[in-house]
């Protein structure tokens, strides 16, 4: 009998790619998937095609997570973001392969992308407890008042991730949103969603609370439209929307005056970012407090 056994290479196990909503990995409510191919047209996997309902579920999850995440200390958020970098470093091989396939890069170039992505998490991990010091401050008002302006996260941010840079670009737009305490609903690159869906697995094992980042894959326009119109979304980053879609989404976003970050031309995702992707999603709160009049006898304080 044994001499009849045909010797073959071991058959690999495919991964079922799923959405990431509220810390869980559901299939799309729509029951639909779409084919994802590499740059030369070879089939890589089927990705879930998120529906409007998935988008709404993701907003609910992001809203639910907002209180805890924005209320965590900046130090704590920094530790968590740094943990993401640690976990990502450990999965370097996997992401090099995925990014190479998704973006048609050589292994060496894909490795450089993944390294830069790990470093990007570290860069933003360091910002969590500094952004307040850099953009906030005391105001010397002309009167006996303590007057302090501090930035606060705006809330739930919909992020239309860049279409081309499926991993470094993705992290470059997601990390600044959550570093400051916002929660995010991310629409992954339509044609290259797999690195984003795999990143969700890293987030799920990195002490990032469920719901802080939610990842949807599918048709960008179909998912972004309900997010842009959603009354419980506070802001939207249009990084991955083309000109026509960006305009349409910005119009929808005006309905509840979402903060809108228009698509920015990015020549080089490797370049060290500035702080504008954080400040775009911050509110400034100014607190006044009387210091007591130091009048006549100075006795009223």
């Amino acid at each position: 009998m044994s001499d009849k056994t045909v010797k073959t290479e071991r058959l690999s196990v495919f991964k079922t790619y799923k959405l990431y909503i509220g810390g869980k990995f559901p299939r799309s409510e729509s029951g639909r998937v779409y084919e994802v191919s590499d740059s030369t047209g070879n089939w890589l996997a089927n990705a879930p095609q998120a529906s409007r309902k998935d988008a709404r579920d993701a907003v609910v999850a992001a809203r639910k997570a907002f209180g805890g995440w924005s209320g965590a200390t900046a130090y704590n958020r920094g530790q968590v973001l740094y943990r993401v970098a640690e976990m990502l470093e450990g999965r370097r091989e996997q992401f090099v392969n995925e990014v190479a396939a998704a973006e048609g890069l050589s292994k060496a170039k894909a490795a450089a992308v993944v390294d830069a992505t790990v470093d990007r998490w570290v860069w933003y991990a360091g910002w969590t407890d500094k952004i307040v010091q850099v953009v906030g401050g005391a105001n010397p008002v002309a009167g006996p008042f303590f007057n302090l302006s501090t930035p606060e996260p705006t809330g739930v941010v919909a992020v239309v991730a860049p279409q081309e840079s499926s991993f470094l670009g993705l992290v470059s737009v997601v990390a600044p949103v959550i570093a400051t305490g916002n929660t995010a609903v991310v629409v992954a690159s339509e044609k290259a969603p797999l690195p984003a869906l795999s990143l969700a697995e890293v987030l799920a094992t990195s002490d990032v609370p469920g719901g802080v980042v939610n990842v949807l894959s599918g048709r960008t326009a179909q998912i972004a439209a309900p997010l842009a119109a959603h009354q419980d979304v506070n802001a939207i980053d249009l990084a991955g929307a083309d000109e026509a879609l960006a305009k349409e989404l910005e119009i929808a976003a005006a309905d509840n005056l979402k903060r809108v970050l228009r698509p920015q031309p990015v020549d080089d995702w490797f370049a060290t970012p500035g702080i504008d992707r954080m400040t775009a999603f911050l509110e400034t709160k100014t607190v006044w407090h009387t210091t007591g009049a130091l009048g006549a006898a100075g006795s009223s304080y």
Binding site: Y75, A125, G126, V134, I275
Partner: peptide
């Protein structure tokens, strides 16, 4: 530990320190 963690983050952000 927190002190090292905090200043680690400054090392590549010195131009923002004012």
């Amino acid at each position: 530990a927190a002190h090292f963690f905090y200043y680690a983050g400054w090392a590549d952000k010195l131009e923002y320190a004012g």
